[in-house]
Nucleic acid binder design. Structure first.
Lengths: 214, 214
DNA sequence: AGACTGGTGTTACCGCAAGTAACATGCGCG
DNA sequence: CGCGCATGTTACTTGCGGTAACACCAGTCT
């Protein structure tokens, strides 16, 4: 009966939601992760309660916002990971894609990685550990799946793939974070160094003169 | 002249400071990173302004608190890294030390890794990127130094060592964070899997049947 | 002794941000 | 027309970081 009506309303609601998210995006891009709800509402040309009606609370808005960027980044990474090239080249392309992304929009990156969620609603502490860095977790799981699908790791390969997925993502993240702050070398060199690490150069390196090696 | 006096005062101030830090420690251990200054002051049996006199602001308190734990953890890691054993054993021991530490006190770990600092003093945004996760940075630099000291990496070895230091620390961190949340395997297995990754098993693994490998 | 200094402690307040009523308004529909 | 119903508002509460302003209690200097 009211199917069309409901659809219309829902459509308009979705449109509003998207507009609000874009406004929030602009504010986050400008102010970083500590953007206030008031600022976002003002940027959207409305007032706070509307935001709360759409997203529940600040965490909801942040989650919706993060999902957009996370999905976009994951798409890029998937593309690099699936390109027709040999393993090493694909690993390097994926690393480069990630680093290029965080380099292009550090504010967004900061928002995704360090949401700085306080959580002072009365007595309820935040769900520690679950909500911390969803992007890292998703990337880790995704990479784990690719590894497990494509590589023959023998018995226990599934668990191994998950460990590696999260480990590699963490390596990429930490190195990228540090690199973004200090810029100690070019992006290409960073990519090559990390790939070398993954390719076992740590184990292959010789000891230095004068003592047992690391 | 007033050397002894100043010393006395300083000593008592230091004692107070330590007491306050211990109280803060207890609160953080109980409430996680979002512990409030009021709660910490109450736990210490005093009121807020004293905390501010001692530590300046919340960031100061957090920094002092983080330094304690960071130093302690780094000492453990250094010990594991310097043990008399071959390279692989030492890497595994270091990984295991880290994982044991975060397993023993996850609240402290959360506090160190995700301080959740907002920074709303007026117009000034937070120093993004510099203050984010000092522990990770310090661990990365430290490991880089060890690598550079002990391994012969040829030309450009210093930059390579720094990249690897931060990358390995990030790998350890992300894998540990994920493992702490999901407990997908034993600690020993995680350690072995990560060491395998560093030892180049990713590059050495064979492709799976039916397509080009990862 | 009495004024001075300096650290310890307090209460009471400001500013700000999250989140929430409670009230207003425009629109389709019987 | 009145009835829902979503959209929007103002005005408020709560809680936190941070800061005066004032009170107390030691030693010190003259």
């Amino acid at each position: 009966m009211d199917t069309t009506q409901r659809t219309d309303q829902q459509r308009s609601a979705d449109r509003r939601r998207r507009e609000l998210l874009e406004a929030a995006d602009r504010v986050v891009l400008r102010d970083g992760p500590q953007a206030s709800m008031n600022a976002i509402a003002a940027e959207a040309g409305i007032t706070k309660p509307i935001l709360y009606r759409h997203f529940g609370d600040k965490g909801g808005l942040y989650a919706a916002l993060a999902k957009r960027h996370t999905d976009a980044l994951l798409d890029s990474l998937r593309a690099a990971l699936d390109a027709p090239a040999d393993r090493r080249e694909r690993v390097e392309a994926t690393l480069d894609t990630y680093l290029t992304a965080i380099e292009a929009r550090p504010q967004v990156y900061r928002f995704l990685m360090h949401p700085a969620e306080g959580g002072q609603p009365g007595d309820q502490g935040f769900d520690v550990g679950k909500h911390s860095a969803p992007l890292l977790r998703r990337m880790g799981e995704e990479l784990a799946q690719v590894i497990e699908e494509r590589l023959d790791l023998g018995p226990g390969g599934q668990r191994l793939a998950r460990v590696w997925g999260h480990g590699i993502v963490g390596m990429m993240h930490a190195a990228g974070d540090w690199w973004l702050g200090e810029r100690p070398c070019s992006r290409a060199e960073l990519v090559r160094s990390l790939a070398d690490l993954l390719w076992g150069r740590l184990a292959a390196a010789g000891d230095r003169v004068g003592g047992p090696g690391f």
